[in-house]
C-alpha cells in the first residue's frame, strides 16, 4: 500500500526525515511511533503530496507520489496534524464544502454521504452551531468524518485521538477496528504507546528522522526467556530454584526459564504455592526505549 525508498526531507540544514524505508502492506494496521519532532508528521505530509521530498521515492497504492498523487488521493482518507475546518460554518456545511471540492462523488448523494460520515464518528446529532464553538474532541471527530467521506481504501491518520477523552478514544478505536475488518488499511501515527499497542499489528518507530524499527508487533513481543512467578512464600522459591531467580519484588519473582508449565509443575511438586505464573514478554515500551535515543524535545547543554 505504501512503500518508500530512501525518503529524505531536509529543511535547510536540519534533516527532518532521513532515508526512510517504509513498508505498509494491504490490510495492515500500521502504527508509526515516535517522540514529538521525530519526523512523523513530515513523513505523513510527504505521503500525501503536501510536502515534497528532497530525495527518495514514494509509492502509494501502486503509483508514484507526488507524480500521480491526483489519482491516489481519492482513495485515501487522511487526518494531518489536527483537524481543519472553517470556524464560522457548521460541521455539516464544512463537510458539504469539502465533499463538493473534491472530484467524484455524485452531487445527488452528497447530503446522504455527509450524514453517513457524521453518524460513523458519533456526530449524527450535531446542530447548526458553528465549528468555532466545538470542543477539541468534536473537531477531531469532524476531521475523521471528513476522512471517511469517500470510503477510502487507505486511512492515513496523524494523531487521530488527540483531544479525545478515554471513552472517545475507545469509540474511535472500535470504529477503526470495524473499518479495518471491512478491508481498509489503517496507517496511524502517534506518540502514545498505549494507543498503538491496543490497535496495531505492525509498528514502525521513528527517531530523529530515521525509521529505526519496523516489524510485526507479535514478533516484537517475543518471550524474553524468563517467567514471572507469584508466590506467597517467595523465599522458598528462591531456595528451590537457587541461582535461576533473576529478580525479586515482594511476592513476584522473575525466573530464567523457557517453559512456565514445566516450572509450575516443578514448584508445585516441591509443595510451593503458586498464585500466578506467566511468560515474560518484551513490552512495546521497552522495545521503543531500546530503539530510540533521547526525547527530541529535550534540549541538552552542548559539550
Amino acid at each position: 500500500m505504501i512503500i518508500t525508498h530512501d525518503l529524505t526531507k531536509r529543511y535547510g540544514r536540519t534533516v527532518a526525515v532521513d532515508s526512510v524505508e517504509l513498508e505498509v502492506r494491504e490490510g495492515d494496521r500500521y502504527g508509526l511511533l515516535g517522540p514529538n519532532g521525530s519526523g512523523k508528521t513530515t513523513l505523513v505530509r510527504m505521503l500525501l503530496g503536501l510536502v515534497f521530498a528532497t530525495r527518495g521515492e514514494i509509492e502509494v497504492l501502486g503509483r508514484p507520489v507526488p507524480k500521480r498523487i491526483q489519482e491516489v488521493l481519492p482513495s485515501i482518507g487522511a487526518l494531518v496534524e489536527g483537524p481543519g475546518a472553517y470556524p464560522h460554518l457548521s460541521g455539516r456545511v464544512n463537510l458539504t464544502l469539502f465533499d463538493a471540492a473534491g472530484a467524484g462523488g455524485r452531487r445527488k448523494d452528497r447530503r446522504q454521504r455527509v450524514s453517513d460520515a457524521l453518524e460513523r464518528v458519533g456526530l449524527a446529532g450535531i446542530d447548526r452551531r458553528p465549528v468555532r464553538n466545538y470542543s477539541l474532541g468534536m473537531r477531531q471527530r469532524l476531521g475523521l468524518a471528513g476522512a471517511l467521506l469517500r470510503q477510502p481504501q487507505l486511512l492515513i491518520l496523524d494523531e487521530p485521538t488527540n483531544g479525545l477523552d478515554p471513552r472517545g478514544i475507545r469509540e474511535i478505536r472500535d470504529l477503526l477496528d470495524e473499518l479495518n475488518r471491512e478491508g481498509t488499511t489503517v496507517f496511524l501515527s502517534s506518540h502514545l504507546l498505549a494507543e498503538i499497542d491496543a490497535f496495531c499489528t505492525r509498528v514502525g518507530v521513528m527517531d530523529r528522522g530515521r525509521l529505526v524499527l519496523q516489524e510485526d508487533l507479535s514478533s516484537l513481543r517475543a518471550p524474553t526467556g524468563r517467567v514471572t512467578v507469584g508466590s506467597p512464600t517467595p523465599e522458598r522459591v528462591v531456595a528451590l530454584l537457587d541461582g535461576r531467580v533473576e529478580h525479586r519484588d515482594g511476592e513476584v519473582l522473575t525466573v530464567r526459564h523457557d517453559d512456565p508449565g514445566a516450572l509450575n509443575a516443578e514448584l508445585v511438586a516441591a509443595g510451593v504455592t503458586v498464585t500466578a505464573i506467566a511468560t515474560e514478554r518484551r513490552t512495546l515500551e521497552q522495545v521503543v526505549l531500546d530503539a530510540t535515543t533521547t526525547s527530541s524535545d529535550r534540549v541538552e547543554a552542548a559539550g
Binding site: 505530509r45 500525501l48 503530496g49 503536501l50 498523487i69 491526483q70 488521493l73 481519492p74 485515501i76 487522511a78 494531518v80 496534524e81 489536527g82 483537524p83 481543519g84 475546518a85 472553517y86 470556524p87 469539502f98 471540492a101 473534491g102 472530484a103 476531521g143 471528513g146
Partner: peptide, 14 residues
C-alpha cells in the same frame, strides 16, 4: 493558517 488548505489539497483539489 486555519489548517484547511491541506484538507482541500488532499481532497484532492489540484
Amino acid at each position: 493558517s486555519a489548517g484547511t488548505l491541506r484538507y482541500l489539497l488532499i481532497r484532492p483539489v489540484s
